[in-house]
């Protein structure tokens, strides 16, 4: 028992040392990217496994970005699939119609980026009126927004209407998905640990107090909403080029609910939690595939049990040291050492 405890202790200290090492995350990024490139170039992994990994990446982007609104800011958005649809359609139309098909993989990042920017612009337009008033209007506005996006796409025949859109090449590859996932996690982490991020957290805790402590709450809300919809658009672009076919029904309220489940499963207000939620949910859906229709019973049931026994999710409001900025970790460490020294001297 004591031996186990010792091993555990030494592991903890090692982990703490690793997370305080400035180049750990960049190194992890480069190694991960190289690994993905090698795997996809030489086909080292089963195609099916690669596909699941790509879905996991896309779901991580969706979950982290929605967590920004629902977890960190404490508002309730249910229209994430709408922004995903905008990104998916813009990116697909660009790779099919505008960029030359022969050098499609070269222009692919531009197409995805354009999808993200498109979604961000629409997000900006939605954010302006919905944050004019305080309260729970966002849920209603985003619900309506999701429906509007779906029916607009269904009624434009030029982009396939309800039949959907196909003809994209399979441009989403493991390295690209890894790259965009890492980028979105990094940027959202940065936002959370900044002046604006603290503003976001204070809005969740007490909006009036936050306003009175000089936080420009409206500015913060709009920034958060735009960043969140940007990454939903990115995820949409990637998603369309994995599946090579999109139709408006894919981006309905069910899809938004899926993302919500991942957020609340992993834990609100936590990046580590979002990643965990996305991985667990995506893998579980695949593992439970043999159950057929019952799969769709199991998942909501899980959500109900989760809300009863762990309402804040697995990581709820806690963050892994991995995603905490090193300056914060060091000042915390310094603080603890000083406290221990004070205790020892007194």
């Amino acid at each position: 028992m004591t031996a186990l405890k010792k091993i555990y202790q030494s592991l903890i200290t090692k982990w703490q040392a690793i997370t305080e090492y400035r180049f750990f995350l960049p190194a992890f990024f480069i190694v991960g990217l190289l690994f993905c490139i090698v795997v996809s170039c030489f086909d080292l992994m089963d195609q099916y496994i690669q596909l699941i990994l790509m879905y996991i990446g896309i779901n991580i982007i969706l979950t982290v970005s929605l967590n920004l609104i629902n977890g960190y800011m404490g508002e309730f958005s249910v229209g994430h699939a709408g922004f995903m649809a905008i990104g998916a359609y813009i990116a697909s139309l660009l790779t099919i119609g505008v960029f030359p098909q022969s050098s499609g993989s070269f222009f692919f990042p531009l197409a995805v980026l354009a999808g993200g920017i498109g979604a961000a612009l629409i997000g900006f337009l939605v954010a302006i009126p919905s944050f004019k008033t305080r309260g729970d209007y966002l849920a209603i506005v985003t619900l309506a927004f999701g429906m509007i996006v779906k029916s607009i796409i269904e009624n434009i025949d030029a982009i396939g209407g309800p039949r959907g859109l196909l003809g994209m090449d399979k441009l989403s590859t493991l390295p690209w998905v890894f790259f965009w996932t890492a980028l979105s996690v990094w940027i959202i982490r940065n936002l959370v640990y900044s002046n604006f991020g603290r503003g976001v957290l204070s809005i969740r805790e007490d909006e009036i107090a936050s306003d009175l402590m000089s936080v420009n709450t409206r500015q913060v809300k709009v920034i958060v909403f735009v960043v969140s919809s940007f990454f939903a658009g990115i995820a949409g672009g990637l998603f369309a080029h994995v599946l090579q076919y999109i139709n408006p029904r894919m981006f309905d309220i069910i899809k938004s609910t899926d993302i919500l489940i991942m957020v609340y499963l992993g834990g609100i207000g936590s990046i580590a939690g979002s990643i965990l939620g996305a991985v667990i949910y995506t893998v579980l859906l695949e593992v439970l595939r043999p159950l057929g229709v019952w799969r769709m019973v199991f998942m909501p049931l899980m959500l109900v049990l989760l809300m009863i026994y762990r309402p804040r999710g697995i990581m709820g409001l806690r963050e892994s040291r991995l995603f905490t900025p090193i300056s914060d970790l060091l000042s915390m460490k310094f603080h603890r050492q000083k406290k221990e020294a004070d205790n020892a001297s007194s």
Partner: peptide, 28 residues
């Protein structure tokens, strides 16, 4: 009306919001 779920330090840091001289892009 403190920000109850946040650390004591963050409570005070939030009140510096208007004094932080960097743009959203620099924050991202």
């Amino acid at each position: 009306r403190l920000f109850r779920e946040l650390s004591v330090l963050d409570n005070v840091r939030i009140a510096h919001y208007a004094q932080a001289a960097y743009s959203p892009l620099e924050a991202l």
